[in-house]
């Protein structure tokens, strides 16, 4: 896996708000920006501005962790875990196993 891809994935995961968004998208896919904001207030009691949430979603999208699907004229966000992300998650593991390189 390329360093720049790993950078994007780890950067995306380095923020607790973004990890919460991932948690919620895993339970309820295809959420609009409005729904992600509403869920944040409802579940965590945290009122994040739409602009803030929009920026978080953009970071997740860049890391390919969030997939955009248009539902009619509304842009929705779903969790998108690929082989690449699994690879990133196991990036540390290789040092546990005999210190082998890729």
């Amino acid at each position: 896996m390329q360093d720049d891809q790993l950078d994007k994935i780890f950067k995306a995961l380095s923020d607790s708000t973004r990890r919460r968004i991932i948690d919620r998208l895993s339970k309820q896919p295809a959420q609009s920006l409005f729904e992600v904001c509403a869920a944040s207030v409802a579940e965590d009691g945290i009122a994040l501005s739409r602009q803030t949430v929009s920026q978080h979603l953009a970071v997740l999208e860049k890391a390919n962790l969030v997939e955009i699907i248009w539902k009619g004229r509304t842009k929705t966000h779903s969790l998108n875990i690929t082989e690449g992300h699994i690879e990133a998650a196991t990036w540390l593991m290789k040092y546990k196993q005999n210190g082998e390189e890729e």
């Binding site: 959420q31 609009s32 920006l33 409005f34 729904e35 739409r50 004229r73 509304t74 842009k75 929705t76």
Partner: peptide, 10 residues
């Protein structure tokens, strides 16, 4: 209107 609907905002 399009921008509101796009972000799911009523």
């Amino acid at each position: 209107k399009e921008a509101l609907v796009s972000d799911g905002i009523p």
